[in-house]
Amino acid sequence: MNTQSVLRFATTILIFLLAILVGAALWKHYMYSPWTRDGRVRAEVVKIAPDVPGLVTSVNVIDNQFVHQGEVLLVIDQARYQLTLNQMRANLTASQANVEASVANIAAAKAAVVAKQADYQMYREQSERRQRIPQGTVISAEARSNAMAVARAAEASWHQAQAALGQAQAAHEQALAAESQAQVAVATAELNLQRTVIHAPVDGYATNVTVRVGDYASAGAQRMALIDSHSYYLYGYFEETKLPRLRVGDPVDIRLMAGGIHLKGQIIGVARGITDRDNPTGSDQLANVNPTFNWVRLAQRVPVRISIDPSQMPKGMVLSAGMTATVVVHPKGGHDQTAPAVATSAH
């Protein structure tokens, strides 16, 4: 074998070894490097639904309109709720009048008790004096009996006045309770009237506005959604083989598929569980184990929540929930090896 053949053979072997090394490096990078193309932009969505039912009299937003917190989104017909509030206020006024009347009744009952007690004391003393007079003198036995009967009648009247006072006090307590109920009814009517005007709870974008003036809005039925403009974040779905290198606080590079926009972020949380599709739970709460097993097993994908740095967002860019992105994590050096590892799916 001449020198040229040896050189060609050595070159071939070198290229083959180099291809193996490059292939192994690429495979390791693909399998274990903390990156994924399966990133999704998400945001907090507030479901806007009336708290009270009624006809819609005003809709102040259109689809995709930006609104500030506190702005009016829609208004429910207020006439019926205003009438209810007026009625509840009238009931409260009547109950307050009943309380004042019950106070006057208590005062009258107390005065009657004092008067009856005085009469009873007077007739009792009179009866006792006549009882002390010896029999056969100027006073007859009949007069003594009459004086005793009058004293007993005065005592009964005194006790009756005391019972009437107790009834007046009970009626006062009932009037106070009725007044409290009327106050609660007024507060409820005022709250219902306030709830006819629906305000934006956060800054955001109104979307899926399906309500129109004249529609009947049922309580609790969603009529639009409000995407919180300050709540955008990212979910990166990482294969379980890549999770051991991820930690909360690691910086993240985000490249949106929409125009290749480059953003910065940070890992803020890792999901601690995903659904096991192969082994669902049966109707009797026992594991429904799949009797077959595939030798080729795909790595499960676990959601990793990533915050988006708003200072790095280009001015005027459109960020929509549902956008896709490529996510590359830059693990920080010197991770604490005693820190709890991210949970992975077992095979």
Rank of each mutant, 00 (worst) to 15 (best):
Ala170Pro: 03
Thr12Leu: 13
Gln160Ala: 15
Phe238Cys: 04
Met313Ile: 15
Ala143Asn: 05
Thr275Ile: 10
His199Ile: 09
Asp276Ser: 07
Arg245Gly: 12
Asn64Pro: 01
Glu239Ile: 00
Val114Glu: 15
Ser307His: 06
Val99Asn: 00
Ala225Lys: 07
Ala25Thr: 09
Glu179Val: 03
Thr210Ala: 14
Ile308Ala: 12
Gly269Gln: 03
Tyr233Ala: 12
Pro280Arg: 07
Val72Thr: 15
Ala343Asn: 10
Val327Tyr: 03
Asn279Pro: 05
Glu239Tyr: 10
Ser307Val: 03
Ile133Ala: 06
Gln96Pro: 00
Thr36Phe: 05
Gly204Ile: 06
Val103Gln: 15
Ser229Val: 04
Gly214Thr: 01
Asn290Phe: 07
Val318Glu: 13
Ala107Tyr: 11
Ala219Val: 05
Gly333Arg: 13
Glu173Phe: 06
Trp27Glu: 06
Ala154Lys: 08
Asn146Trp: 07
Thr207Ala: 01
Ile13Leu: 15
Ala182Ser: 12
Asn279His: 14
Ala90His: 07
Met257Asp: 12
Arg132Lys: 13
Ile20Lys: 03
Tyr233Gly: 08
Pro303Glu: 10
Val56Arg: 01
Arg255Asn: 01
Ala19Ser: 12
Pro310Tyr: 07
Asp38His: 13
Asp77Met: 02
Pro201Gly: 14
Ala185Pro: 00
Ala115Gln: 11
Gln285Asn: 13
Val248Ile: 15
Val45Ser: 00
Ala94Trp: 00
Val252Pro: 02
Asn208Tyr: 09
Arg195Val: 12
Gln194Tyr: 13
Ser320Glu: 09
His330Asp: 15
Ala339Val: 03
Ala185Tyr: 03
Thr11Val: 15
Thr326Gln: 11
Trp27His: 11
Val270Asp: 02
Ala185Val: 03
Gln169Ala: 11
Gly204Lys: 07
Ser345Tyr: 09
Ser320Asp: 11
Ile274Thr: 14
Leu7Cys: 14
Asp77Trp: 04
Ser218Leu: 13
Gln183Thr: 10
Ile20Glu: 08
Ile268Thr: 11
Lys242Val: 02
Val302Asp: 00
Ser145Arg: 07
Thr275Arg: 14
Gly249Asn: 06
Ala147Lys: 05
Arg272Thr: 15
Gly316Thr: 08
Leu193Ala: 01
Glu100Asp: 09
Arg8Tyr: 15
Ala221Trp: 05
Ser345Ile: 14
Met122Ala: 14
Val202Tyr: 04
Val327Leu: 14
Thr188Arg: 12
Gln312Phe: 13
Lys332Pro: 01
Ala225Glu: 11
Tyr232Asn: 03
Arg152Cys: 00
His347Asp: 11
Ile106Asp: 08
Trp35Tyr: 11
Ala109Arg: 01
Leu263His: 03
Lys332Trp: 01
Val211Phe: 11
Val184Leu: 05
Val289Trp: 02
Ala219Trp: 08
Ala147His: 06
Gly249Asp: 05
Ile62Ala: 15
Leu246Glu: 01
Val41Thr: 12
Val59Ala: 02
Ile261His: 04
Gln169Trp: 01
Leu14Ile: 15
Ala24Gln: 12
Gly54Thr: 06
Ala141Gly: 04
Gln183Ser: 13
Val197Thr: 14
Val329Gln: 01
Val252Arg: 00
Pro50Lys: 03
Thr326Glu: 10
Val114Ile: 11
Ala171Pro: 03
Arg212Leu: 13
Gln117Val: 02
Asp215Ser: 10
Gln65Trp: 04
Pro34Gln: 02
Gly70Ala: 08
His347Gln: 14
Pro53Asn: 03
Leu234Asn: 05
Lys264Glu: 10
Pro134Gly: 12
His199Asn: 09
Val22Phe: 14
Ala25Met: 13
Gly259Tyr: 08
